[in-house]
Nucleic acid binder design. Structure first.
Lengths: 237, 237
DNA sequence: CATTAACTTTAAGGTAAAATTAAAAGCATT
DNA sequence: AATGCTTTTAATTTTACCTTAAAGTTAATG
């Protein structure tokens, strides 16, 4: 039982159009002691959120009617809910750079399918961030973490969580990984990487990228970043 | 949206006891426009199949109660469902020599975990192979992939998916294939190929193209790239 | 059916690109 | 100014890809 920090259990609102997944998620979260509310559509979700003031809202991106992104906007527009933690729920392989570009104000992406254990740990991490005494609301606006299978990229803390272990990455390494991870599967050319991570003007030698890739592979394992010779690098997911 | 060939979206029945897998698969397939039905057990699956007549059934092999193999047998015993395409879903590393030996009547195996784009392409391949009238080859919105029968060319990832299997191609091979595939049926002369893939200035011998064609044929099969003697090469499917 | 031109096939270097390693150069922090 | 960490460079090795060359095959033509 982890839902109760000291006294009151954390309230979590789940929104997904599929009853099945809703049950799966709520079952696992309730087992941990969380107080779970559910809704199968965005409209109802906004209502519930207004009434119960959950600490965390998990929103499926793809929903008929009012989709996750719109729902998120509406929620963020409500004064009372300004600092609720909101996480999107997406299927793996999505283009996160695009979704992030929407800037709808989510704090996290959780990718499906997700194992109960991983779900719980992500939820815990998100709630830790909520921390009411921390009134300096840092997490405004865009998404701060992206979960790609075994790897979670936390843009706010510049760290990643790999197989449950936190790894603090230096700036450049982190930005390189975040770029590749923003569009899993896409090959980024060296030029694209240089422009995005180093900036238009900065000139560094070609081997610099290689060395950073090496560092990342050392820390994450060899399997995540793939080389496409003559083209560039990609995050394989 | 690719599920709709011309008008009616293809119906797919998914059967897996794990809720999150089910959700992952259905999310991705629905996004492509398929009409997806799900069941967490074999018995209910047979019922659904009887009622909705899906074009494709994807069955997890390992399920409690009525397992995939038995379910498949039952389905095949139903006269109405004789020519439904059935694919097993197995975990990677599972011993499926045994399963294959059972010969329960499946048309394909899909191994978990599977990447979204591979899943989609595999499903398309299956539907196309066994429903030949489904000849309409509408490209989906994703501007970076080209669907050519059993082959998907993904320009972003620099790879192709053939019969649902990813093949990472080297630069030159990929570019050659992408050129030929950009206009299926058209014969590209050697000059056109050289100019487009190698560039105006670069001078390479004529045999170089042949060798790359060979490599592609090795990886894809002989049937896709056709030689038109005295003229050039073309992609056919 | 011999000739020839065009394509196929195979295997062996050559080479450009990437990986690797170590060390130097930067930068904070104390 | 000394320490520890990050970033970049430089030098070397390794790898994968590309090209070529050489021999084999095919198909058209007289």
């Amino acid at each position: 039982m982890n839902g109760m920090s000291s006294n009151p259990p954390s309230k979590i609102l789940l929104v997904d159009d599929e009853q099945d997944i809703l049950e799966f998620l709520s079952y696992n979260l309730r087992k941990e002691g969380y107080e779970v509310y559910t809704s199968t559509n965005g409209k109802k979700a906004v209502e519930i959120a207004r009434n119960v003031h959950p600490q965390l809202i998990i929103l499926d991106v793809m929903m008929p009617d009012l989709d996750g992104i719109e729902t998120c906007r509406e929620l963020r527009a409500i004064d009372d809910l300004k600092d609720v933690v909101i996480s999107f729920l997406t299927a793996r392989g999505e283009d996160y750079s695009q979704i992030a570009g929407f800037d709808a104000g989510a704090d996290d992406y959780i990718t499906k399918p997700i194992k109960p254990r991983v779900l719980i740990s992500r939820v815990q991490a998100l709630l830790r961030r909520y921390n009411p005494e921390n009134k300096t609301n840092k997490n405004k606006g865009n998404a701060n973490t992206i979960q790609l299978g075994q790897i979670t990229i936390d843009r706010e803390a510049y760290l990643i969580i790999h197989d449950g272990t936190e790894i603090q990455l230096p700036k450049k390494e982190f930005e390189l990984l975040a770029l590749l991870g923003s569009k899993p599967g896409k090959v980024f050319t060296r030029d694209e990487i240089l422009k995005s991570v180093w900036g238009d003007d900065v000139v560094v030698g070609d081997r610099t990228i290689d060395v950073h890739v090496r560092k990342l592979r050392e820390k994450l394992g060899e399997e995540y970043i793939k080389t496409v010779k003559g083209v560039g690098y990609k995050f394989d997911f």
